[in-house]
Write a protein that binds this DNA or RNA. Structure first.
Lengths: 197, 197
DNA sequence: ATTTAACTAACTAACGCTTGTTAGTTTAAC
DNA sequence: GTTAAACTAACAAGCGTTAGTTAGTTAAAT
């Protein structure tokens, strides 16, 4: 019930739940599953979280809050804008490549289309990065559509990495996962060409 | 059990199930939900499909088979390649904009990462379009990476439309859904710039 | 210093409900 | 008269959740 950050059991539950919610989804995952992965029994979860929904929401906050920080930060430097964009894409790309949980939960929110979750994602996770990105885009090219470009960039970053398990079955798709450095570099090039390189 | 295409009840079940699976997902949807939406009782579903999993697979085939046809078709014309690409993007874009079910089920397969479903999507749905697209890309610019471009295009088309409910909560996101014509035009421009316009 | 009280967080047992699915029956069509 | 496809009834399993209990820790009172 406390949900306090300093409680180590709550933290362990959140970390475990994040993994499980990400890979199995809300409905396919039972409280007993989560509890057993934490080496406790299901009713004990209710000492830390009001109900399943509250645990899910807390999990989303837990995963997303720490993530959005690194991105805004690199857009606040005083590098030249083109370089700033490159750095942003590199950092965001690495996050997408490494953080399966983040990517998966992001997609799940997009799929479920729950209004509360969408608002949370937009306001608490994406808003700052979006604003900073908009500024960088218009700085590079005042005639561009920063909103379109931001969505495009998000789509490219998320999709390329999410599609990796699919890609290997596509024609001309090599058996191995495409190197994230290669993808990141090409996405950087793509955005710059789009901005009138 | 028959799953034959000419059976009208089976067809009605598939159409209904497609809507429901798309919007609620596999686990959140019960056989009783599906049945009730078809104005029958749950056990009657088993006269047409072996079990829930089989109904789901049949639904995927039902939704995707008809979709992949239109796309390959427009890539087989003998228009100049740049025009062919434009037409492909326009048709695919309209499908993404209109066909909520297709988009949603596509994303769900990507999320669930079930190997069987990924293979089905790759081989039965995407393979032909991918090959044709590759050809068009190298025809326009022999030095490009057609595989990267194909994935990028898929990502842009899917994501822009899937992100529309999110977009309206983002900073500078207008209250209304972005016009699909506008999105399609910008994606066309983007691809052409990428190919060295 | 010892006892008492209160709180935290784990447990077991269980409730009411929903799930996918089967069995057995009925009804209508060829 | 066989068959296809609907039905009712029901099963076993699993679900989220609550109640009640217990053990361990902390704080105040004696």
């Amino acid at each position: 019930m406390t949900e306090s950050k300093e409680n180590s059991t709550s933290q362990r539950i959140l970390k475990t739940a994040a993994e499980l919610f990400a890979s199995k989804g809300y409905d396919a995952l039972s409280m007993r599953d989560i509890a057993s992965a934490c080496d406790i029994k299901a009713p004990s979860l209710y000492n830390h979280f009001k109900d399943k929904q509250a645990l899910y929401q807390a999990t989303l906050k837990f995963v997303f809050k720490q993530q959005s920080q690194a991105l805004v930060c690199c857009l606040e430097s005083d590098l030249p804008p083109k370089q700033k964009l490159n750095e942003f894409i590199e950092i965001a790309g690495k996050q997408m490549a490494d953080n399966f949980i983040f990517r998966q939960l992001f997609f799940r929110i997009l799929l479920a289309q729950d209004e509360e979750d969408l608002k949370f994602l937009a306001n608490q996770v994406l808003a700052d990065s979006c604003n900073a990105l908009h500024a960088v885009f218009v700085e590079i090219n005042p005639d561009c559509d920063p909103h379109f470009l931001t969505t495009s960039l998000m789509g490219l970053l998320l999709f390329h990495f999410q599609a990796n398990p699919l890609r290997i079955y596509l024609p001309a798709g090599s058996e191995q996962t495409q190197a994230s450095e290669y993808l990141i570099e090409h996405i950087q090039l793509m955005l710059h060409k789009q901005l009138g390189d």
